[in-house]
Amino acid sequence: MFSIKRKTKGEALFDLFNNFGMLLICFATMYPIWYVLVNAFNEGQDGMRGGIYWWPRVFSFESFTAVFQSSGIMGAMGITIAKTLLGTVLHVFFTAMVAYAFSRKGLIGGKIYILFGTVTLFFGGGLIPIYLLMRDLHLLDNFLVYIIPAMFSFFDLIIFMTFFRDIPDGLEEAAKIDGANDWSIFLKVILPVSMPVIATIALFHGVYQWNDYFAGVIYMNNMDLQPIQTYLYRVVAQSSSNQMLAAIPGGIGKSVTSQSIKLATMVVTTLPIVLVYPFLQKYFVKGMMIGSIKG
């Protein structure tokens, strides 16, 4: 017979307060998202009256229609998708390549490189020097400003390097016996067995690339090359509602307001990554545990 251990009053009280606290945290986290979603689907003029908290009072798609008819949002979405895909692939490959070299015991000066890289985790050059560097590299108003500076991350290198060091040496030795060089070993042996850490880093950097608006604000004056998050930033920060509505072609109903367009734009720009992230969350957890337990 199995005995069921009963909780003491103190343990039961702790569980009660713990669960209540977690529910409050979940509510405080999720409700602002729900509030934006509800008001985005509400008719604009009616939404100006306020009092909409849980469900649209007058359901309407006109704000979303206005957003998708905007001359800039579809181009900005294309730039974001392009920089997210290209930036993630190059970041993962380049960082993994450097991490593989760092993980080898025979690397000359490896400890010095690690020391220099660790310093960059705590100290940065500052915005002005980085801006001047981007200018001298002719990356201002250039799509590559989203890609090249983000191709390498020392933090991600540490995760890669820890994983690579746990790969059995026998795999590389067998490949060398078969005549494989370092490139062949890296591409045909190391990367195929490293899919968990690759998926983790891809998740890290993909979310960063999608959410990054700062590079577009600082380095990009060409509106045709702005990403969707920069577009959202400028929509939300727009001081003149007349200028915002002027960017939308005619045919939109009178119910659309600048506030409803802002809310709809927030939903359009954040919903894709919100829908994708839960499916990749398991890789995020696995990646954070890489190297933390030794057999």
Rank of each mutant, 00 (worst) to 15 (best):
W210C: 00
A199I: 01
V217F: 10
I198W: 00
L203H: 09
A215S: 12
S184F: 12
D212F: 05
A202M: 09
V207W: 13
I198N: 08
Y233E: 12
W183C: 07
D224I: 12
Y213Q: 05
A202H: 04
V217L: 09
Y231E: 10
Q238G: 00
K188F: 15
D182Q: 10
T200N: 12
N211S: 03
A215M: 07
V189W: 03
M220Y: 08
M195H: 05
I190S: 07
I198Q: 03
V207Q: 14
G206L: 12
P227D: 12
T200H: 08
K188N: 15
L232R: 02
L232Y: 04
V189M: 02
R234F: 10
V193W: 15
L225H: 09
I185L: 12
V217I: 10
I228A: 00
A199E: 04
S194I: 13
Q209T: 05
M195S: 15
G216T: 06
N181E: 01
F186S: 14
A237H: 11
P196K: 00
K188L: 14
R234I: 04
P192N: 14
A180M: 13
P227E: 11
D182K: 09
Q238H: 07
L232N: 07
L191T: 06
H205T: 12
I198H: 04
F186C: 14
I190L: 08
Y233N: 10
V236T: 01
Y219W: 15
F214L: 07
V189K: 11
F204H: 04
A199W: 00
S194Y: 09
G206F: 10
M195E: 03
Y208T: 11
Q229C: 01
P227C: 03
R234A: 01
Y231H: 09
K188M: 15
T200V: 09
D212Y: 05
K188Q: 15
Y231N: 07
F214E: 00
D182C: 02
V207T: 14
